[in-house]
Computed example of a mutant assay.
Amino acid sequence: MDANDGFRELDRRECLRLLVTVPVGRVVYTRQALPAVLPVNFTLDRDGAVLVRTSASSELVSAIDGALVAFEADEVDAATHSGWSVVVMGAATVVTDPAEHVRLLRSGPRSWAPAPQEVFVRIDAELVTGRELVGGRSVYGVHFPS
């Protein structure tokens, strides 16, 4: 961390540990040659892959299956100007293996907007980066030590 920028780089393990503390993140993908961002609820799989459960007929599934995407989640405290952000980048694929699908029905994410036919999308954690804002301040300029 540069002493003047107030940010600390997070390693992969720290990033994955933080991701499991929040229920919602954002899938960043390309839609009609333009950047698109969609908030989703998610869980992490055993290998750190991001798992999303959604309608089989959703635009998201058709747009990201087989594509390289980014997934971002964060937690921010506006009062103390502190928080963290983690980005996972990798290939997104629809889970098609029947045994894997059954496993994920038990342990994977629950859809917040259930649909008649749902699929699981896995985003491989090929590259995981993150940073934490440290030494936050209140909106009144009072420093809160860590």
Rank of each mutant, 00 (worst) to 15 (best):
V119G: 01
P116G: 06
S138Y: 14
A67H: 11
F42G: 00
A115L: 01
L68G: 11
Y140F: 15
V27H: 02
P116Q: 08
V121R: 00
F7W: 15
L18W: 08
F71A: 01
L18M: 11
P145F: 12
H143Y: 13
L16C: 08
Q32A: 14
R8Y: 06
T80V: 07
G66T: 03
F144Q: 15
D124F: 10
V37Y: 07
V28K: 08
R17T: 14
G108N: 02
S111Q: 06
L51Q: 10
F42S: 00
L44W: 00
L19W: 07
V50C: 03
A79I: 09
R53L: 03
A91Y: 06
D45P: 05
N4K: 15
G141E: 08
H81Y: 12
A67F: 04
R26D: 05
L127A: 13
L51I: 11
D77A: 10
V88G: 01
F120P: 00
D11R: 01
R26V: 09
A99K: 11
S107H: 15
S107R: 15
L104I: 02
F7L: 15
T93W: 07
E72C: 10
A33S: 12
V22I: 08
G108R: 02
D11V: 00
G136K: 04
T54V: 04
L38C: 06
V139G: 13
R26E: 07
G83D: 03
S107F: 13
P116A: 07
V27E: 02
W84Y: 12
A67N: 08
G90D: 01
N4G: 14
N41F: 03
Y140R: 15
Q32N: 14
G130T: 01
S82F: 03
W112E: 06
S62D: 15
T21A: 08
D45S: 15
Q32I: 02
V139I: 13
V139R: 15
D11P: 00
G48S: 04
A73S: 13
E132I: 03
V95Q: 11
V119W: 02
S85N: 05
G135R: 10
T43R: 15
A115V: 01
E9P: 00
S62L: 13
L68V: 13
F42A: 00
D77H: 12
L18K: 12
V50W: 01
A78F: 12
V86G: 01
G130P: 04
A99C: 03
H81F: 12
I123E: 00
P114D: 02
A99D: 14
F144K: 14
P35T: 05
